[in-house]
């Protein structure tokens, strides 16, 4: 049963991964076209301007906070030996997200400390409670089951951290920290560490080694062990790429659509570009919630699979 389940999950992950890769590749193919466009236009003598719409500049990290046309703030560069720990744009965005979360949750936490069990939550606390309870019951408890409580702090934080970063990225002048692969890499590593630690704790070294065989007979081990070993890393890798690609892709599309106005240097393109951008923006708003949910849900699923006891099948 568990073997079967894992096979399905792995297949689904692969499918998801392939789908994401295709989407991401499509968006990256769009980028050079848009970047190449001014050159073509220049060659044809329609536009005389040398300026390019640098799409990637809007989604990558940097050492400045740009507030065009008002100017920009240069962030400090910190180096310890060869190790560069500069405070970049995405670090600032993460800190803004953390600050928002702290301000929000300190006040809500205090509300709940004072609340009696017979009292109904009101206002902001009510709104947040819906999300907290959704993560708690429908994501964490549903996927981990017994003993889910000890994973709650990590998974709740991951959900709200990713959600806040995603949403902050939609504000003009802000940047999306979750569209940086280093950020999603770090989060995926946390899930990976928790999954491996849980499996060690629940099943011991022998159980951890046994899961590599996928419960198959010994003559299949030569196939199963590499597959399971890869799957161990593919799961967090998929988490990392999924969040990064989704958050990047949406912004690339928005920048590209707006860029079309400047590429064609025509007022007539603007209404269409703005209309489609508005639709994309709505989609991004949905994706912001969706990706926070997916990351938390898959992390819970992996932890649940690692914690599952196999005696009863």
């Amino acid at each position: 049963m568990e073997y079967f389940l894992r096979r399905i999950t792995t297949t689904r992950l692969w499918q998801g991964l392939v789908l994401r890769s295709v989407l991401t590749a499509t968006f990256f193919l769009v980028v050079p076209v848009v970047q190449a466009a001014p050159t073509t236009a220049h060659a044809e003598g329609i536009a005389q301007s040398e300026e390019k719409v640098d799409v990637l500049h809007h989604v990558t990290d940097g050492n400045t906070l740009e507030f065009e046309p008002f100017g920009e703030i240069h962030l400090p560069t910190i180096k310890i030996g060869d190790f560069d720990i500069s405070i970049t744009r995405h670090v600032v965005m993460m800190w803004v997200a953390s600050l928002v979360l702290l301000l929000l949750f300190v006040s809500i936490g205090n509300t709940y400390k004072k609340m009696k069990p017979t009292e109904a939550p009101k206002g902001l606390a009510n709104l947040i409670e819906v999300m907290v309870d959704f993560v708690r019951i429908d994501i964490v408890k549903a996927n981990i089951g017994h003993g889910y409580e000890r994973f709650l702090p990590y998974l709740l934080t991951v959900f709200f951290f990713i959600l806040t970063c995603n949403l902050l990225g939609l504000i003009p002048y802000a940047a999306t920290a979750t569209s940086n692969i280093s950020v999603t890499f770090t989060l995926a590593v946390f899930t990976f560490v928790i999954v491996q630690f849980t499996m060690f704790k629940e099943h011991g070294l022998s159980g951890w080694l046994a899961h590599l065989t996928g419960g198959t007979p010994w003559f299949l081990w030569i196939i199963m062990i590499p597959v399971e070993f890869l799957s161990m890393f593919i799961k967090p890798f998929a988490l990392m790429v999924r969040l990064f690609a989704n958050m990047t892709a949406g912004h690339v599309v928005i920048v590209t659509l707006i860029g079309l106005i400047f590429v064609f240097k025509s007022w007539f393109v603007a209404p269409a570009a703005v209309a489609i951008t508005l639709a994309m923006y709505g989609l991004e708003l949905f994706v912001a919630f969706m990706q926070a949910y997916i990351f938390t849900m898959l992390s819970s699923l992996f932890i649940g699979m690692a914690a599952a006891h196999e005696e009863h099948h």
Binding site: I78, H90, S98, R136, P153, T157, S182, V183, F185
Partner: peptide, 26 residues
């Protein structure tokens, strides 16, 4: 560098939010 800052920020956030929010809310 970003991995470092992400790890620090996130771990601190997990720690503080567990104390001030998750524990009382849950």
């Amino acid at each position: 560098g970003l991995v470092f800052w992400t790890a620090i920020t996130f771990l601190l956030l997990v720690f503080v939010l567990s104390k001030v929010a998750w524990k009382p809310i849950v």
